Amino acid sequence: MAVREKFDYDLKELQNKLLEIGRSAEEALTKALGALETKNVELALQIMEEDSKINLMYEEINDFAILLIAKQQPVAIDLRRIIVGIKIATEIERIADFAVNIAKATIRIGNKSYTHPIFQIKKMHTLTTEMLQLSLKAYTEEDILLAKKVAGMDNEVDDIYDLTMKQLLEENQKNPDYVQQITHFTFICRFLERAADHITNIAENVYYLVKGRHYDLNK
């Protein structure tokens, strides 16, 4: 295999590894929402246990990317592809951490009936997972229009977050006996909002990959 052909193969392998860790993070988020909906402590514990696999995948991606730089000494667009790969892996690892945080909050809430409906949290989750799928599609296709769409969806998540936080604060005043549960719901909303921000960072890295410049899509 020629040197360039081998390098292209390795770049594709890096991309595949990123897609794999992305799918794992999305699965973790979906399981976290499922655990919250069903008050399933066992599922929440499973998410926490599986996070170690995602952490290992993250470390393997970093090692693989660093080895590529050391062996190939790439420049221009090839170097950007590797750097962006490292950055995206970092964002995805953080997203998976937020899934773990949601699982922990679910365990702390316990089996009590919910004083506040979680349909808006479900909407935030749906948007966040769709954003993650689109951001990775934008990355693989190097499509800045898709990346821009991801940033627009982040604004939707922010709007739902603001509305839900306001409602939870009002609920806290009406039902002071549920203050601990409501507090955990505010944390869960925050975890989803932050996950969406990290996904927007992936979209920003797509812009950097394609344009060679940094863009702030969180404005």
Rank of each mutant, 00 (worst) to 15 (best):
R4G: 12
Y9H: 12
Y9L: 14
Y9S: 12
K12G: 14
K12F: 05
E13N: 13
L14S: 08
L14N: 10
K17T: 06
L19T: 04
L19Y: 05
L19K: 12
S24D: 07
E27V: 06
A28S: 14
K31C: 03
A32E: 05
G34W: 01
K39M: 06
N40P: 08
V41L: 02
L43W: 04
L45Y: 06
L45P: 00
Q46S: 03
I47A: 03
M48A: 04
M48H: 03
E50L: 01
D51E: 13
K53G: 04
I54M: 06
I61H: 05
I61P: 02
I61Q: 01
N62M: 05
F64M: 10
I66R: 03
Q72C: 10
Q72P: 11
Q73S: 15
P74W: 13
I77E: 11
I77G: 05
D78V: 13
D78I: 07
I82V: 15
I83K: 06
V84C: 00
G85P: 02
K87T: 07
I92A: 00
E93R: 02
E93A: 00
D97Q: 11
D97T: 13
F98A: 06
F98E: 08
A99Q: 06
A99T: 04
N101E: 12
I102T: 09
A103F: 07
A103S: 14
A103C: 12
R108Q: 14
G110W: 13
N111A: 10
S113E: 09
H116E: 13
P117F: 12
Q120F: 10
T129K: 14
E130D: 15
E130N: 15
L132V: 03
S135T: 09
K137D: 15
A138P: 13
Y139T: 06
Y139P: 00
L146K: 15
V150A: 11
G152C: 09
G152S: 13
G152M: 10
N155V: 05
D158I: 00
D158V: 12
D159W: 03
D159P: 01
D159G: 09
Y161R: 06
M165K: 12
L169I: 15
N172D: 02
Q173W: 02
K174E: 11
V179D: 04
Q180I: 13
I182V: 08
H184K: 11
F185I: 07
T186R: 11
T186W: 00
I188R: 01
L192H: 05
L192F: 01
L192Y: 14
L192M: 08
A195V: 09
A195F: 11
H198Y: 11
H198P: 09
T200W: 09
T200A: 05
N201S: 14
I202S: 01
I202T: 01
V206G: 08
Y207I: 04
Y207S: 00
Y208C: 06
V210E: 08
L217M: 04
L217N: 01
L217H: 10
